[in-house]
Simulated assay, not measured.
Amino acid sequence: MTYQRPAYEQVTISHGGNTVVLRPSLRAAATLVERHGFPGLFRALDDLNLTIISEIILAGSTNRQDAAAFLLSQAGKPLFPFVSAVRQPLGDLVSMFTPARDPKAKASKGKAISWAEAYAGLYGYATGWIGWTPEAAWNATPTEIDRAYVAHLDMLNAIHGSAEQEQHVHDPCEEVTEGEARSGLAKLKANAQRGKP
């Protein structure tokens, strides 16, 4: 069975009557991937590493106080049932730290970049191109920023045209150089002095 990414990227973790909502925000992605890398995050879930699992929950939570209370409620209780309950949703969350593939997008021919560079680029698109506040950029997911940036470019292309669209064909016969203009003007003056039209 393949993983179906939700349209609105969010996961809910529940255990022992407590629930926390998590979002794969740019802030969470940049912080956790910089600190542990994607392999380290997935390995922590496989190895039942409570420290990193707690970091993922705190970084991804929509309400940090709820996340702290959720983790505190697990203190002194058996670890395995807790980790078994949160492992799959946290794996889904970490997967959402990469922008969802746009089926209309063409394959990139650019050079490979690090995730830190990719996240910095997304932040730049959000704040520089789209005009979001820094807070809005950090709270949006990488997919949301990517989709908003593409939509912004589509809007600019619709308003101003695209370089890919057919350009107006320029007729070189209509072009007159400065030298030709001066030469023509000189001929007109000479003809006027001789009384010719």
Rank of each mutant, 00 (worst) to 15 (best):
A192N: 05
R23P: 00
Y123D: 02
T133Y: 13
R147G: 01
E117R: 12
T2W: 10
R64Q: 09
S61K: 09
A68D: 10
L188V: 06
F38V: 06
S95N: 10
A136F: 11
L188E: 13
L26C: 05
A44P: 00
A158L: 03
G60Q: 05
A118W: 11
F82Q: 04
D154Q: 05
S25F: 05
L153K: 10
D171Q: 07
R64M: 01
L71A: 06
G161E: 06
V33S: 05
A190F: 10
G37K: 11
G40C: 01
E174K: 12
G161D: 09
H160K: 04
E180A: 15
L188F: 11
A126T: 09
R182P: 02
R43A: 12
A29P: 00
D102H: 06
D66V: 00
E9L: 00
S61F: 07
M96Q: 14
S84F: 05
A140T: 09
V169R: 15
D171F: 06
T62D: 12
L185H: 07
K109M: 01
D154M: 02
T19W: 11
E175M: 05
A118P: 00
A29M: 08
A59K: 03
L48M: 10
R5L: 05
S61Y: 11
A192G: 03
M155E: 15
L41Y: 04
P134L: 08
I57K: 14
P134F: 14
V21A: 13
A67M: 04
I52G: 01
W129N: 12
R5Q: 11
